[in-house]
Write a protein that binds this DNA or RNA. Sequence first.
DNA 1: AGCCCACGGGG
DNA 2: GTGTACGTGGGCT
Length: 596
Amino acid sequence: MERKKFVLLDIDYITENNAAVVRLFGKLVGENGNRSIIAKDKSFKPYIYVLPHDIETCITELEDLNIQKVEKVKKQDVGVLKEFLKLTLKHPQDVPKLREKIWSLDSVDAVREHDIPFYRRYLIDKGLFPMSEIQVEGKSLNSNFTSEEDPYIFEIIGDPQPLESGLPELKVLSFDIEACNPKGMPQEKEDPIIMISVSSNQGLRKVYSTKTSSFDFVEVLNDEKELLEKFVEVVKSENPDLITGYNTDVFDFPYIRDRAALLGVTLDLGVDGSEIKFMRRGFANSAVIKGRVHVDLYPSMRRFLQLDRYTLERVYMEIFDKEKKDIDGEEINACWENGGERLEELFEYSLDDAVAVTKIGSEMLPLSMALTRLVGQPLFDIARMATGQQVEWYLIRKAFEYGDIVPNKPSNSQIANRRKIEGGYVKDPVKGLHKNIVYFDFRSLYPSIIISKNVSPDTRVDDCDEENCYIAPEVGYKFLKEPVGFVPSVIGDVLQERVRVKTRMKETSDPHEKHVLDVQQEALKRVANTMYGVYGFIRFRWYCLECADSITAWGREFIKNTMKESEELGFKPIYADTDGFYATYLGSSDEDREYS
DNA sequence: AGCCCACGGGG
DNA sequence: GTGTACGTGGGCT
């Protein structure tokens, strides 16, 4: 029996001998070098829940299906304890194959938790959080005959153990490609890749190109094929934990894929030697490299920053308040064709893009990593999820911890029938240019309403006397005062944890630790402040129109009262929306204030 | 007012 | 892969 400790970077599953094998990808800690590990777990089995109409008949009817195990279990379903059947299946892909058939049985009322991807189920059930350290016991499958550069292949015996650990220091490789076309955007069928720039958070700065330069950082390759092969070689030898870029899901990686296919280059960038894959994720595609986390910073920036445009230049300016070297897309072709000074400039620009991505990554990845450690799903997914989805997966994990059954994802017809909520209070702005503006911030208002009024799908009742419930103004929906609802309880945990983190922040004098804790409390704040959104977003599992309407009703009442009170204190409200209101102060002070 | 469609980023 | 989907703004009818 051996023991290995590693930072959990990513997870997936493969099929071996018709059975699912979960693979945990990581970087070993407490050992020399920069060595990857792939730890396999054969023991985890997929399962779903069935809500039977008639439990004994149901068990009989299920016998004919290809199910490994049927157990009776009690779970909370929207506040009601019910008896479910837990069906253990033989393979994750049996779930989509069998669920319709099971649902159509006369003895079955509903199938639940049939839409949770297997690797996510594993992370939740085992209590594991990517971007933190875990320890596994088991045996090595390849220690005797591999070189230092190959990943350690390991078979897990027993459960992996989560370890207390800070934010890991990871190796991040950023890259950017250039290609050009005299008429506009380069076309992958015609236009070759002319340079690939790479940069790392450990100081690497290189441009690979098919033309020469007087710059030391430029290395010349004979042709485009060699250029692509060089890129693959660099990724393998650097062995980064993260690969970042800007719009790499949609532009750089697909372009590299198409050129590589044309030139016969194998893009075996994965830690396990696998080739890069492309996944359709909603309306966007994403590039998957097994064992390394490919983070396209573009979608993350759209969530973290509130801008009119999200070009790399604009984002860089916003974060660093500095201009980034930029060449107009239409000039790139001329720079390349004409050579000379302009070509040298292009080399600089190309490297600068890769370096800018590294810098933006150093600034923003800690927040994505903190969210990953909080939500408990892979960074790859977190970096591409809307905040509402992040919250949903956080709630799914909490539901597991609380012994609650997770609501199903709404079907398309259910979504079509769901109504969007009436927004918060909006006061039309007073026209004009105002001085001495103060902002009263209410973004933390909704979490506190959810907690103080116990707003949750499982506490909502139609009939209840005033003593035992809270009644929302205007809309009149009722919520039991006791017991504490699922969502209020989770938000309570989040806010409490945030207080604990902020306290630790004050106690520490180490600036690095302070920063890490600050990012952690920021992640907790984001999740808490987005939590109310799950009620009002039509495609969410915990959608509850009555809850959403009640929260905004209480919010409007509170905003109006606060505006009235502020007027008595000498403020004049100018404009209000859901998140807060602007007012001018008629006194002389123009200092910024925040009210919550 | 309601529907359809394109766009975002990237060179 | 226990996949599959966003929000918005403009033009047109």
